[in-house]
Design a protein around this nucleic acid. Structure first.
Lengths: 126, 126
DNA sequence: ATAACTGTATTAGTACATTTAATACAGTGC
DNA sequence: GCACTGTATTAAATGTACTAATACAGTTAT
């Protein structure tokens, strides 16, 4: 269910973080359900447990999961995390759009471009 | 005129490429005008000439500049480069929007978000 | 209590990309 | 010839990511 893209320039632990965030936010992982153990997920993805540990610690730090020592890690209620993610996504979008404007693309062209991207993304969800 | 952001995680040569692309595409550097020499720009930005050389070679390879050995590098006509850049930007936008949808953000929320970002970016240009 | 799980911490080693540095070579123009 | 262009090469230093191998502590079931 999680696919590591070795062509992606970002570090593996960041890819793991992103995928798990998405699964939590879109409801694929339900609040208070147990996350896979560090060692199991590492086995499943053929990664070192340290790499998964790093991802889990980041997820706990940002409120996506909570941990009970000896028992495991569990999905958090998503209220706070969802708001943060929305802010994060808007910031990324803002960066892309700023770059586009600096390269001489007009607002109207950008609106059309955004609409094209959104409908394309909708189609993929089917 | 070019500012290197050492907090940016991307390599320096990529930042240089991006800034020069923007300056060429928005007309700040006119077609057939001479680019600063590799050594001069390196001095000005306090970087190693090799770093600038790497950026220039990438810019030549993608059609932003052309080079005459012994004379220097010059800004290209921007027809081809502009189209490539537009495609590049739309691809980046598509990625951001796909991620947003995967995180459970709806199309309508995304449209509002995009509009907010575009108007914010317009304001900065004043 | 023992075994088999959980998360956590630490240290070491390897690999890789980026950047700097120091040169050297070749073409252009005064 | 000199001063400027771009180009090429090799070496060294740096930082990050990742793996590996352990060790420790808490939970749970038998």
């Amino acid at each position: 269910m999680i696919l590591i893209d070795y062509k992606d320039r970002r570090p593996i632990y960041e890819q793991v973080i992103e995928k798990l965030q998405q699964m939590i936010l879109c409801g694929a992982l339900e609040p208070h359900s147990p996350m896979p153990s560090v060692r199991n997920l590492a086995m499943e993805l053929s990664l070192n447990p340290n790499t998964i540990q790093r991802a889990y610690q980041a997820l706990e730090h940002t409120g996506y999961i909570y941990t009970i020592k000896g028992k495991g890690s569990f999905v958090s209620e998503l209220s706070a995390a969802a708001d943060n993610k929305r802010r994060e996504i808007e910031a990324e979008l803002q960066k892309s759009i700023d770059k586009a404007m600096l390269s001489g693309i007009t607002s109207d062209e950008l609106r059309q471009m955004a609409e094209r991207c959104i409908t394309a993304s909708e189609r993929k969800k089917l």
